[in-house]
């Protein structure tokens, strides 16, 4: 081997053998083989039937409307509402701050299935005459003035508003806003105070500093938990039967299952769809994380990106 006056060269050492790791890998391989064997050869799964269920028109309609569209709309309501609630919570105005706190407390306390059940059953009773847009306490004012009629411009039926599709978006969106409020608040608080000061020193109003400087940076902290919230919301659409909303994936496969007595394969169709949707959402999330992480080392770490920064600059506006 190397003599004493020769300088040491490249390393070629014997690695430590991780026997425990090998044993674990072997055990996992065996377990996976058992799992695949069961999935493929156990006749109970009936995969051709699963595919057939996945292709049924009511199932696809339920997937698109009750599951995907409701998820998308409730998350829009939830994120916008959550940011608004967070800004209110952090405001100097004690009334706004308290209202935001009370809202969050109320909607976080109520299980979604309970909220949806009560909305579907109770709103029609509470608002027997429907919901109207007009002058508040108009009947009292009219009585005082000795007039007749009403001062209402638009009246909506509470039953159609709060059960069915609109009710799903309102109920789940209201609940989601409470959770998003906490997430958005943490995001806003994560941005250094010096950022607001620098923005204000440049002549930005508080609202503009929030919109142009604080929120884009807060998004870096807000996006990952929002991804989790979206996945959770997508799964919680399976609660919508409590409203009741039947045009939804889980209820539709269940209906086919009880009609055909193929319960397990029918529910498997839903499982496959849920897995697919979650996978797509995860890709979207990683894209968003990259977008809002720009300037924080998340996007521009390679020398190439520094050498060709023109590629990055376009995305900012």
């Amino acid at each position: 081997m190397a003599s004493n006056d020769e300088r040491p060269g490249l390393i070629d050492a014997v690695p430590v053998r991780h026997y425990g790791r090998w044993a674990a890998v072997a055990a996992i391989v065996v377990l996976l083989l058992m799992l695949f064997n069961m999935l493929i050869f156990n006749p109970v799964f009936n995969w051709p039937f699963v595919l057939e269920v996945m292709n049924q028109a009511p199932v696809i309609e339920g997937l698109l409307k009750g599951t995907l569209l409701v998820t998308a709309l409730t998350m829009i309501v939830g994120v916008l509402g959550g940011v608004l609630l967070a800004v209110m919570r952090l405001s100097d105005n004690p009334v706004l701050s308290w209202v935001s706190w009370a809202y969050t407390w109320f909607f976080r306390s109520i299980p979604r299935i309970v909220l949806l059940t009560i909305m579907g059953a109770g709103m029609g009773l509470i608002f027997r005459d429907g919901l109207s847009l007009g002058v508040p306490f108009d009947w009292k004012i009219i009585e005082w003035l000795g007039l007749s009629g009403d001062w209402r411009f638009l009246t909506l039926d509470a039953n159609t508003l709060f059960s069915g599709f609109a009710g799903a978006v309102i109920g789940l969106g209201a609940s989601e806003a409470a959770y998003m409020a906490e997430i958005a608040r943490a995001g806003i608080l994560s941005v250094d105070k010096g950022q607001t000061e620098a923005a204000q020193a440049l002549g930005m109003s508080r609202a503009k500093a929030m919109r142009r400087v604080v929120l884009p940076q807060a998004m870096r902290v807000i996006v990952p938990p929002t991804g989790n919230e979206t996945v959770a919301m997508m799964k919680d659409t399976s609660l919508l039967i409590a409203l009741p909303l039947t045009a939804e994936l889980f209820y539709q496969v269940g209906a086919i299952g009880s009609r055909t007595y193929q319960i397990l394969p029918s529910y498997l169709a839903a499982v496959v769809y849920y897995l697919l949707i979650t996978s797509v959402l995860m890709v979207g999330q990683s894209y968003l994380e990259r977008h809002f992480g720009r300037g924080f080392g998340a996007t521009v770490t390679s020398d190439k990106a520094i050498a060709e920064p023109g590629l990055m600059a376009g995305s900012a506006h």
């Binding site: 010096g194 620098a198 204000q200 930005m204 109003s205 300037g295 990055m312």
Partner: peptide, 25 residues
């Protein structure tokens, strides 16, 4: 207040550049 501030430039001890924007932005 914003209008008054816009007439005064300020440089901070800890720079406070906006990290999500390029130098140009």
């Amino acid at each position: 207040v914003a209008r008054q501030r816009s007439r005064i430039g300020m440089v901070f001890q800890r720079f406070n550049l906006f990290p999500h924007m390029t130098a140009l932005e």
